[in-house]
């Protein structure tokens, strides 16, 4: 498997699976990230929290190659890497559920889930898109992992908000990732659907997949994650272990942008 190969290359088995150091990113005059560090340990569920506009989405888009950092380094399993596109990130085993979902409305469910990694089959001398396999696998992933039945040949524009969110999550599971990043995956969901995604996060983690979860819900953060990294206004406030802090501590970190008294950093 691809992931076994990736592990075999590792020089330093103790290095964090992802380590971002001193990441800076500006959009014109707007400084979105001002020297942020983020560490993701193999097998953990890490929460990334902070107010709207604090730079969470920009940080993960920089990690997966949608944006290039203005400064800073990204290491994967101890090796410094340049990630030039989401496709390259995927080759390193990183899948992303974007906050804006990144669905193409005019394409079918299956085409969206396999966008950029479309399965092909050989027909004579040409490699042809294997629509049948694509539809079947898309249907299977949605049914087994998210308990949702949709016609995968239907254009995404015909789907409800919750279904769209499920398609975007399902898409992240297509490539058997080592790391799944979810940017507010439950924001558009009903209470029932939210609990389904929580279950999914737990089962992914049980399978050894590392999860980075961006969330606004402290309930989610406390029920799902091992550690919490807090951003404030493009700066890193700090990272704490979830079971060593209270919700109030996290709120204080988000609002005041300061570490709580007595917490280890």
């Amino acid at each position: 498997m691809a992931s076994a190969d990736r592990l075999a290359e590792v020089a330093d088995a103790d290095a964090p699976i992802i380590e971002m150091r001193g990441i800076k990113k500006s959009f014109g005059q707007v400084v979105a990230l001002d020297g942020v560090d983020l560490t993701l340990e193999e097998g953990e569920v890490l929460a990334l929290v902070g107010d709207n506009g604090s730079g969470k989405s920009t940080l993960i888009k920089t990690l997966v190659g949608v944006h290039q950092p203005d400064a800073g380094t990204i290491s994967i399993r101890g090796e410094e890497r340049t990630i030039t596109s989401p496709k390259v990130a995927r080759e390193y085993g990183i899948s992303t559920v974007y906050q804006d979902l990144a669905l193409v409305d005019t394409l079918s469910v299956a085409a969206n889930m396999f966008l950029g990694r479309t399965p092909t089959k050989r027909v004579g001398i040409v490699r042809q898109v294997d629509w049948a396999q694509m539809n079947e696998r898309a249907e299977e992933i949605l049914r087994t992992r998210l308990n949702i039945e949709v016609d995968t040949t239907k254009e995404v524009e015909f789907l409800s908000g919750g279904e769209r969110q499920a398609i975007a999550i399902g898409r992240a599971l297509v490539t058997d990732p080592d790391i799944v990043i979810m940017d507010e995956p439950m924001s558009a969901l009903s209470t029932d659907s939210k609990s389904k995604v929580r279950e999914l996060v737990r089962s992914l983690n049980d399978e050894g997949i590392t999860v980075l979860l961006i969330s606004h819900s402290l309930d989610e953060v406390f029920s799902l994650t091992d550690r919490v990294t807090v951003l404030d206004n493009g700066r890193l406030v700090g990272t704490v272990e979830t079971d060593r802090v209270s919700k109030d501590d996290i709120v204080q970190m988000i609002v005041a942008g300061e570490m709580p008294a007595g917490a280890d950093g």
Binding site: S85, K87, V104, T106, A111, N112, L115, G116
Partner: peptide
């Protein structure tokens, strides 16, 4: 498929890994 994706939504196509 990439042509349709870029035409449908270039930002989404890029985030999905289409060059």
């Amino acid at each position: 498929l990439a042509v349709y994706a870029v035409g449908g939504d270039a930002t989404s196509a890029k985030e999905a890994g289409i060059p």
